[in-house]
């Protein structure tokens, strides 16, 4: 039986994510000041504060789908900008992926990210190279899929995801925005890292840190 990831670990992951976003609020706002309306840090910090409150409520269901749905609900009404419906849809769609109830194995975790990515793309209609969070998430999911197909361990799969996400995030510096508010800047958006691609990177950074440790929590 391969290693399973429990709801407890997913909760720990998203708490680490919330903390990482809050630490980086000013950085995210700075990035959104250059090519947006300077609110991505504030939007995400507000959502993450709500998420921390939500995740710390005792006696919640250990069902993974229910857990991911409640994360989605919190982000939909807590974030506010474009990132709200986008991250909300990501987790809402991830919640429809197959699980073993209160745990998922590595291929299922990978599929969960794939469902989320597909939902995100349907919602925002962005493609790779449009300079959005897709540029981080898509290569990360593809790297996970390749590593899972090669029967790698959780540590290897998630390290590959983090690395691909990081490259994708940095790649947004070089390209012109074609979706979202930054697209109004046209070629002036080149040379700046996309704020959403940056907040999305932290999903994979914290996943690599948290989800590779085994044990109850």
């Amino acid at each position: 039986m391969a290693q399973e990831i429990t709801t407890k670990q997913l909760r720990k992951w998203l708490l680490a994510y919330a903390a990482r976003i809050i630490e980086n609020e000013d950085h995210l706002t700075e990035l959104d000041t250059a090519i947006g309306d300077a609110d991505h840090g504030v939007n995400m910090r507000r959502g993450m504060g709500k998420l921390q409150e939500r995740l710390q409520v005792e006696g919640q269901s250990e069902d993974i789908s229910a857990f991911l749905r409640s994360v989605a609900m919190t982000l939909i009404s807590g974030v506010g900008g474009a990132a709200g419906p986008l991250y909300g849809t990501f987790f809402l769609r991830a919640a429809t992926s197959p699980t073993n109830g209160s745990s998922i194995d590595l291929p299922q975790l990978t599929q969960m990210f794939r469902y989320g990515l597909d939902g995100l793309q349907q919602r925002g209609k962005a493609q790779a190279d449009d300079k959005t969070m897709i540029d981080t998430i898509q290569p990360a999911v593809e790297a996970m899929e390749a590593a899972v197909a090669a029967h790698q361990s959780a540590a290897v799969v998630l390290a590959a995801a983090r690395q691909a996400a990081h490259l994708g995030m940095k790649h947004t510096i070089e390209i012109e925005a074609r979706k979202g508010r930054a697209s109004y800047l046209g070629p002036h958006s080149i040379g700046h890292q996309d704020p959403g691609a940056t907040s999305a990177y932290f999903l994979f950074e914290t996943a690599a840190e948290v989800l590779t440790t085994t044990g109850a929590d």
Binding site: I76, G81, A82, P85, L86, G88, T89, L92, G124
Partner: peptide, 9 residues
């Protein structure tokens, strides 16, 4: 902006 995506959601 986000109004369109939120309405679709």
């Amino acid at each position: 902006g986000s109004a369109v995506m939120s309405a679709e959601l």
